[in-house]
Computed example of a mutant assay.
Amino acid sequence: MNRALVVVTPNERSKRILREAGELAAGSGAELVVLTVIPNDEFEETRSALADVGSSDVVYGVDQATESARRRAKRLARETLDGLDVEYRVVADIGPEVDSVLETAQWEACDHLFISGRRRSPTGKLISRDTTQSIMLKFDGPVTVLLAEADETDSESKEKKSALA
Results as ranks from 00 to 15, higher is better:
129 R>D: 12
33 V>D: 09
40 N>R: 15
126 L>S: 07
70 R>Y: 04
99 D>L: 11
142 P>D: 12
16 R>P: 12
137 L>H: 11
78 R>F: 09
132 T>R: 03
91 V>H: 03
20 E>H: 08
8 V>Y: 07
157 S>R: 15
53 V>M: 15
89 R>F: 05
55 S>C: 10
159 E>H: 14
27 G>S: 11
51 A>D: 07
147 L>P: 10
89 R>C: 04
16 R>V: 04
161 K>L: 10
101 V>T: 05
73 A>P: 02
65 A>S: 03
127 I>C: 15
76 L>E: 06
111 D>R: 11
131 T>N: 07
102 L>K: 00
17 I>C: 00
2 N>M: 15
99 D>G: 13
33 V>Y: 04
116 S>R: 01
8 V>I: 09
159 E>F: 09
120 R>S: 06
125 K>F: 06
39 P>A: 08
139 F>N: 00
142 P>W: 06
112 H>K: 03
88 Y>H: 08
130 D>E: 04
156 E>M: 10
135 I>K: 01
144 T>M: 09
149 E>P: 04
22 G>D: 06
120 R>F: 07
122 P>T: 07
106 Q>D: 15
78 R>K: 14
122 P>V: 03
6 V>D: 00
97 E>C: 07
156 E>K: 05
33 V>C: 13
106 Q>P: 13
76 L>N: 02
41 D>L: 11
7 V>G: 00
91 V>P: 10
94 I>T: 04
136 M>G: 00
7 V>Y: 01
91 V>K: 05
117 G>E: 00
45 E>Y: 14
91 V>M: 02
100 S>Q: 01
153 T>E: 12
99 D>V: 14
25 A>T: 02
20 E>T: 10
65 A>M: 04
134 S>P: 10
75 R>Y: 15
131 T>P: 03
4 A>D: 04
137 L>Y: 14
93 D>Q: 10
94 I>M: 06
47 R>G: 04
9 T>V: 07
17 I>V: 08
122 P>K: 09
61 G>I: 07
57 D>V: 13
95 G>H: 08
150 A>W: 14
34 V>A: 11
40 N>S: 06
70 R>F: 04
139 F>L: 09
12 E>N: 10
97 E>N: 08
59 V>M: 02
149 E>D: 12
67 E>N: 14
96 P>I: 09
3 R>V: 01
126 L>G: 06
126 L>K: 13
141 G>F: 02
9 T>G: 12
91 V>Y: 03
113 L>A: 08
96 P>W: 10
83 G>S: 06
139 F>S: 00
58 V>Y: 13
31 E>G: 07
67 E>V: 10
165 A>L: 09
131 T>H: 13
134 S>E: 15
147 L>C: 13
101 V>F: 06
146 L>F: 07
5 L>N: 02
105 A>T: 03
126 L>F: 14
27 G>L: 12
27 G>W: 04
86 V>N: 01
148 A>Y: 15
58 V>A: 14
157 S>W: 08
149 E>R: 05
154 D>F: 11
117 G>L: 01
135 I>F: 01
162 S>V: 15
139 F>M: 01
145 V>I: 05
68 S>V: 13
74 K>F: 05
144 T>L: 12
21 A>Y: 01
7 V>D: 00
99 D>Q: 14
68 S>T: 11
129 R>G: 11
88 Y>W: 07
54 G>N: 06
56 S>K: 07
56 S>T: 14
89 R>A: 02
7 V>K: 00
4 A>P: 09
54 G>W: 03
59 V>D: 07
130 D>H: 04
